[in-house]
């Protein structure tokens, strides 16, 4: 039952994240949507891991390890994307004043 509830939740998060990616125009909001989408994918991994529980292990450790790796990669992506957006805003301003 726990797995059904969170499986539905994960699937819904994927849908919500995808929707946000399509309808949002601001880069920061897209980054948020990407993270929601990623969270949904990780949650599906988690449900699959929980389903793979055996005697003595509450959850299959292999997908758990993949999710940990994935969270760190998603963080790296978020940090890089945010720096790009911030730099883009600074540069856009700089160009207007300077080069033209």
């Amino acid at each position: 039952m726990t797995m059904t509830v969170f499986g539905l939740c994960g699937a819904a998060l994927v849908g919500i994240g995808l929707y946000g990616l399509i309808v949002q125009a601001q880069p920061l909001r897209r980054i948020l949507a990407f993270n929601l989408l990623g969270g949904g994918v990780f949650l599906l991994f988690g449900v699959i891991a929980r389903r793979g529980a055996v005697e003595g292990l509450g959850s299959d450790p292999v997908p758990q390890a993949m999710v940990i790796t994935g969270i760190v990669v998603a963080f790296s992506a978020t940090a890089l994307a945010i720096s790009l957006v911030v730099r883009l805003k600074e540069t856009g301003r700089g160009d207007d004043e300077g080069s033209a």
Partner: peptide, 11 residues
Amino acid sequence: VLYLLGTALLY
């Protein structure tokens, strides 16, 4: 992320 979703389903 779509690729990762696919790997989750396959696993």
